[in-house]
Design a binder for these strands. Sequence first.
DNA 1: ATTATGTCCTGCCAGC
DNA 2: TGCTGGCAGGACATAA
Length: 269
Amino acid sequence: MADAQVLHPRAVRRHAAGPTDLVARLRGRTITAACRRGKYLWLVTECADAVLAHLGMSGQLLVSEPSVPAHKHLRARLVFADGGPELRFVDQRTFGGLSVEPLVGGQDPLPAPIRHIARDPMDPAFDLEAAVTSLRARRTELKRALLDQTLVSGIGNIYADEALWRARLHGARQTATLQHRAARAVLCAAGEVMAEALAQGGTSFDALYVNVNGNSGYFDRSLKAYGQADWPCARCGTPIRREPFMNRSSYSCPRCQPRPRNRKPNPLP
DNA sequence: ATTATGTCCTGCCAGC
DNA sequence: TGCTGGCAGGACATAA
């Protein structure tokens, strides 16, 4: 790598030693591998560390010829000594970022800050039965658990709603009272949704969601629940409902995914 | 210990 | 026309 540039300090806020240190650590390095777990990506260098990236919700990693004009929201770039394309980190809302992290662990090294991130359903070593057990051991609502990256990673608001729709479960169901087969169904559904979305190039609502070549995916056209408020359910025709969820929205079919009864725990005396 | 909530950020769009 | 407020949302710090 010939050079690294940071154009917005917030994009490297996770790098504790600061932008200057990050650049100094990267200059002259060679990238030897590209890895991913859940929503984290990292590029391994020959020095047993890695450039760790998270796209947040508006981040993009773009492979661009140096002659391509800089994007308005270009936050950082990696320039390579071979004269080939650059790697550009573009992020409108700056929830994402880059940092350089040591790789830790023997068999399957991970950047240190993401050791707590669970394997995702696309991972060949993903253990479905272990995830089912972990899910049912939680004491929370199902959708909250699906979004917990320490339990299963890679699931965000969109794929959580799609997985719940496929499994015909409401996100407010308690994890602790889920039958084993229901828990397995929703986790399998999550893996299937992610695989299908990947095959279609991802879920792109607008120009923010693109691959390294700047192209959008088409999975948004296959969404059955997320963003489909008032449209008929693809299974039963009932209008999809939108409900508030953690200052956001959840979408579900009122008929296929009935809201659970409010089973209050024992009322206090 | 586990679980829940507030916070960060910018651009877009509906409504007035 | 131009402003305001709501919305989008991943992960972490902090609180309970």
